[in-house]
C-alpha cells in the first residue's frame, strides 16, 4: 500500500519527517484525516491542536501544533507549524504549570479583554502539549 511522506516543519527547524499510513490533524473546520492518495488539500490548523501520525508497527507520533498549515499533494503531507513539539519532548511539569497559571489568570477575571484572550490561548496551548504527551487533563 502506498505510504504518505510526512514532514513536520517549524520556521526554526525540521521537527520530524518520515513515512506514515495516516495523518490526523485539526483544522479550523474540524478534524481531518489524511490517508494515501488523498486529494490535494491546503488547510489552516487551529491554535493548540494535536497532530497524530499513524505509523503502523512503530506506533503513533503525537505532537502539539500551535497554528500553521497542512498541505497535502501527491502523497506528500507537510505540516507547517509556527511552533510544534513532539509528545515525548514535552516538559509535562512545565506544561501543567503553564496551564495552572493561565487558568488562575482566567478565573481571577480581573483582566482586560486582550489579557484574557492571551491567557485562554496559553491554556489551550498547554492543554495541547499535555494531550500530546499522553497526559490526562
Amino acid at each position: 500500500m502506498a505510504k504518505l511522506r510526512v514532514g513536520v516543519v517549524s520556521p526554526e527547524r525540521e521537527i520530524w519527517s518520515g513515512e506514515a499510513d495516516m495523518v490526523i490533524a485539526k483544522t479550523v473546520d474540524g478534524e481531518i484525516g489524511i490517508m494515501p492518495n488523498h486529494a490535494p488539500v491546503l488547510g489552516v490548523l487551529v491554535e493548540g491542536g494535536v497532530l497524530r501520525v499513524k505509523r503502523g508497527a512503530e506506533g503513533d507520533l503525537v505532537a502539539a501544533v500551535h497554528g500553521g498549515f497542512l498541505s497535502v499533494a501527491d502523497n506528500d503531507v507537510s505540516i507547517l507549524a509556527e511552533a510544534a513539539e513532539l509528545g515525548d519532548e514535552v516538559d509535562v511539569a512545565a506544561a501543567r504549570d503553564a496551564l495552572q497559571r493561565a487558568q488562575a489568570s482566567i478565573d481571577a477575571g480581573n483582566n482586560d479583554a486582550e489579557a484574557e484572550e492571551e491567557a485562554r490561548l496559553e491554556a489551550k496551548r498547554a492543554r495541547a502539549r499535555l494531550r500530546a504527551a499522553g497526559e490526562d487533563i
Binding site: T27, D29, A39, L42, F69, A73
Partner: peptide, 23 residues
C-alpha cells in the same frame, strides 16, 4: 494540482501570506 481548501481559499491566503512574509 487542484487543491481543496479548508476552510476557503481566501481564508487560507489570509493566514498564509503573513507567514510567508515572516519567513
Amino acid at each position: 494540482p487542484y487543491y481543496e481548501f479548508e476552510p476557503t481559499a481566501g481564508d487560507v491566503l489570509d493566514a498564509l501570506l503573513p507567514r510567508y512574509i515572516e519567513s
